[in-house]
């Protein structure tokens, strides 16, 4: 399961992810992280059965944690199966089936948002 962790400046200096790994013993995979002078955001992957444990730990350390139930939202009726998204995605979420229809493997999605910009047909949106 994927968790979106955000933290503000002061707390960004604390090793929140490392602390959570040590305290919970859960191995966390960081899939994407953007940390600048004012705030940080990290998308992490944890085993499904331990996601609440990790969330609670990180929350207690001052981070804002949201469990992401799904990846990028795909509106099939707007999609024309062009494939503009395929080469843009860093995680190979998009591919064609044998009939050149688009397949979306959203479990691989790290919500980077690149495909939203690349889709000419507004068929892909970030979950709210």
């Amino acid at each position: 399961m994927k968790l979106l962790v955000t933290f503000s400046k002061g707390k960004g200096r604390k090793p929140i992810i490392a602390q959570a790994v040590r305290d919970t013993g859960v191995l966390i995979a960081v899939e994407r992280a953007v940390i600048d002078s004012s705030a940080g955001e990290a998308l992490i992957e944890v085993p499904d059965d331990q996601c609440r444990l990790v969330r609670d730990k990180m929350s207690s350390l001052g981070a804002n944690v949201r469990i992401l139930d799904h990846g990028i939202l795909f509106n099939e009726s707007e999609c024309v199966d062009c494939g503009a998204c395929i080469s843009i995605c860093p995680r190979d979420v998009f591919s064609f089936d044998a009939t050149f229809r688009l397949i979306v493997a959203d479990e691989r999605c790290i919500l980077c948002g690149k495909c939203v910009e690349a889709c000419p047909h507004d068929a892909l949106t970030m979950p709210a």
């Binding site: 024309v80 199966d81 062009c82 494939g83 395929i86 064609f96 000419p120």
Partner: peptide, 20 residues
């Protein structure tokens, strides 16, 4: 889906739809 340029494999995207 893949084209080799200077020895490197590069992914392709179509803008038109072959399915349509």
């Amino acid at each position: 889906g893949m084209v080799t340029v200077n020895g490197e494999e590069i992914r392709t995207s179509s803008l038109s739809s072959f399915n349509r």
